[in-house]
Computed example of a mutant assay.
Amino acid sequence: MKKIARFIYRILFYFLVLSVAWVSLYKWVAVPITPLMIIRYINSDSKTIRHQWVPLDKISKNLQLAVICSEDQKFISHTGFDTAAIRKVIENNQGKKRMRGASTISQQTAKNVFLWSDRSWIRKGLETYFTFLIELLWDKERILEVYLNSIEMGNEVYGAQAAALFWFNKPASALSKKEATAIAAILPNPRKYIAFPASPYIQKRQQWIARQMANYGTFVLPNE
């Protein structure tokens, strides 16, 4: 039993050291590829990955605000988890087989950059751990930058720059409010929905996001 305990301790120790080092590295280094990109690449016939890292100041403020308003309006103030939304989801999901989540931008970043995509409790536990780490070691500006450069924004399209070029043939820095809301509107299912030309459903989502942006007003990241 002592040998087993020592083995488990070593595994946990090495995991802790390596995970902290990994998260610390990505505080400064552009994320070149994510596990999701690799999985999609292996499973696709085209073997295509559209992805180009750009700094946050090269991504339109319209898109920054659009994704915050559509995905996580408490992003600036929370510490990684929206506890009120989690409680509401738990209440609404009681007795339902298919549960809906309440993932923040921080949680989505942790999942997309460090983990695989499924709904197991192990993955959810690791997501919680990595969310805690990035909130501890990164600032909000870096979390948003990594998020906007890593998430799926179309089929085989990852990050703001690739999405702007793919959907609107322009760089991410030049996205208008209407274009930004179109991209934000497809985020719940970017492999199914199309940003342009937008379907009636996506247009309705664009209008909702635009109203949220107007109500939210301008936003300033803590380090700006």
Rank of each mutant, 00 (worst) to 15 (best):
K140L: 12
W28G: 06
K47G: 00
S120M: 01
S173T: 14
K88D: 12
V23Q: 02
P188H: 01
R205V: 08
W121F: 08
I59A: 00
W167A: 10
Q203A: 08
S120G: 04
Y193E: 09
I134E: 03
G159Q: 01
W208S: 14
N169G: 11
R87N: 12
A5L: 11
A210W: 15
R211P: 14
Y14H: 15
T48Q: 04
K192N: 14
K61Q: 15
I8D: 07
W138M: 09
F132P: 01
P200E: 14
T109H: 01
G154I: 05
H51D: 02
L187N: 08
E91T: 15
K177Q: 14
L115M: 06
E141R: 11
F81C: 14
P222H: 04
I11M: 14
I202H: 02
W208I: 08
S176P: 07
G154D: 12
Q108K: 09
P200W: 10
F130K: 01
L136V: 13
Q107E: 12
R123Y: 03
L144M: 03
L148W: 04
L65P: 15
E141D: 13
V29Y: 04
N43L: 10
R87E: 15
Q73V: 13
G159L: 01
Q52G: 13
E141W: 03
A198S: 02
I68M: 03
V157D: 05
F219T: 08
Y201R: 05
N215R: 11
K3P: 00
A85W: 06
L12H: 10
S60M: 02
S44I: 11
G154W: 06
V54L: 04
I38K: 04
M1R: 13
A172S: 06
L144C: 06
L25G: 02
E156L: 01
L63D: 08
S199K: 07
S70E: 04
I4E: 15
P190Y: 03
G95S: 05
D82Y: 06
P32F: 12
N155I: 14
T218A: 12
N149H: 08
F166S: 15
I105Y: 02
A110K: 08
A84P: 15
I49P: 06
W116Q: 01
R142Q: 06
Q203T: 04
N223V: 14
Q206W: 11
R40S: 09
I39G: 09
S120H: 04
A160E: 01
S176H: 10
V17Y: 09
T128Q: 14
A30C: 05
Q64Y: 06
H78S: 10
L187T: 06
S77W: 14
F114N: 05
S199G: 02
T128R: 13
T48R: 07
F166Y: 09
E179A: 01
K96I: 09
F7C: 11
I39W: 15
T104W: 03
K2D: 15
A85V: 00
D139E: 07
Q94V: 08
T109V: 11
I143N: 09
Q107R: 09
L126T: 01
W138R: 00
I59Q: 03
A85R: 10
L56W: 04
T218S: 13
I49K: 02
K178M: 12
I8N: 15
L56M: 04
F15E: 05
T79K: 10
K124F: 07
V146L: 08
E152C: 07
Q73T: 12
M37L: 00
K58S: 03
L137A: 06
S19A: 10
K47T: 06
L137V: 00
K96C: 02
E71G: 03
M153G: 13
D45E: 09
